[in-house]
């Protein structure tokens, strides 16, 4: 993953960058599998590596395939990024250790979902039970977000076409 990221930042050829993005997504998916989050890994592989690669290639078709030289020096953004990263690392010091059984996240509602979930919903996959049943309202909100994204894309991209036709 480190190699992919370094190559991403160094490369000026946008086609190579898009392919490296796909590679990075697949590597992230394998990390998710290693963390036992198969549902997330599946989404990452299908959306991150599959569809967004195709969409970026479609966008590349509309513009130049070589990145322009940056107009300004990268020092200020670099400083901001490193500063934010350090603050985030500082924040992780207060988090409980990885797979700590008494961490707050494991003692709040998670045990109830794990114990009662299969009995109450009859769904063996706890992820689906929480996502669709206990947190049905959140999932409705997520679907609304996807819906809004689609409507926004339609409003942005198809309107411009009509405007151009009107001028002709």
């Amino acid at each position: 993953m480190m190699v992919a990221v370094v190559a991403l930042t160094r490369s000026r050829n946008l086609f190579a960058v898009i392919v490296l993005f796909g590679l990075y997504s697949f590597l992230t998916a394998t990390v998710m599998v290693a963390l036992d989050a198969v549902d997330v890994a599946m989404t990452e592989a299908a959306v991150g590596a599959g569809i967004s690669t195709v969409l970026l290639l479609g966008a590349l078709h509309l513009c130049n395939s070589e990145e322009e030289k940056p107009a300004h020096k990268p020092w200020l953004p670099l400083l901001v990024t490193i500063g934010t990263g350090l603050v985030l690392v500082y924040g992780t010091w207060d988090l409980p250790a990885f797979s700590d059984p008494v961490a707050p996240i494991h003692t709040h509602v998670a045990p109830r979902y794990l114990e009662q979930g299969p009995r109450e919903t009859g769904v063996p996959n706890v992820v689906t039970a929480v996502l669709a049943s206990y947190r049905g309202f959140d999932t409705l909100g997520e679907t609304m977000v996807v819906f809004t994204a689609g409507i926004g894309i339609i409003a942005l991209l198809s309107r411009r076409r009509y405007v151009r036709r009107g001028k002709q």
């Binding site: 969409l55 078709h61 669709a132 679907t143 819906f147 689609g150 894309i153």
Partner: peptide
Amino acid sequence: GIFWIELGVAITVCGVLLKIFYLFT
């Protein structure tokens, strides 16, 4: 209930992704 809402999510996600793809290409 879970069956029907999962179906709804699938339909919306598939439609949005296809629409974005169509518009870009």
